[in-house]
């Protein structure tokens, strides 16, 4: 009984995580410039992976797998923002951004409108 409930919950979590990852992918395709795209690549993607991992944990339920899943989740949370920041910084410093989309840029003076 408990196993069935856990399996059901796992299925829901896996589908939700997959949908969020799909939305992240669509965002990366549709957002207009690099910086906007990095938003899509960090938030829904991170939560998507976390939900997938939670689903996996509920389905596998063995201690060794749980340890591995916890590690993946931890490193995902720790590294995704760092990767996004590195890419964002590189894009900003090399001027690969669409200034027409910016309301303001306090680092480099207000954007020309």
């Amino acid at each position: 009984m408990v196993g069935t409930v856990a399996d059901l919950l796992a299925a829901v979590l896996l589908v939700a995580g997959a949908l969020l990852s799909l939305a992240a992918g669509i965002g990366v395709l549709r957002f207009p410039d690099v910086l906007d795209r990095m938003h899509a690549a960090t938030k829904p993607q991170t939560l998507g992976v976390l939900l997938l991992l939670a689903g996996l944990a509920l389905r596998l339920r063995s201690p060794s797998d749980l340890g591995m899943i916890a590690l993946v989740a931890l490193f995902q949370l720790a590294t995704a923002p760092v990767a996004a920041q590195m890419i964002g910084r590189a894009a900003y410093r090399t001027g690969r951004l669409d200034r027409a989309l910016l309301e303001t840029d306090e680092v480099d003076g207000p954007a020309p409108h």
Binding site: L20, A23, A24, P32, A40, K43, P44, E103, V107
Partner: peptide, 20 residues
């Protein structure tokens, strides 16, 4: 955040304004 960014990504005809 995830739901908001996902909604922005999927909703049609939206052009986000951003700022630094």
């Amino acid at each position: 955040a995830s739901l908001r960014v996902a909604a922005l990504a999927v909703l049609p005809g939206h052009r986000p304004h951003s700022a630094i």
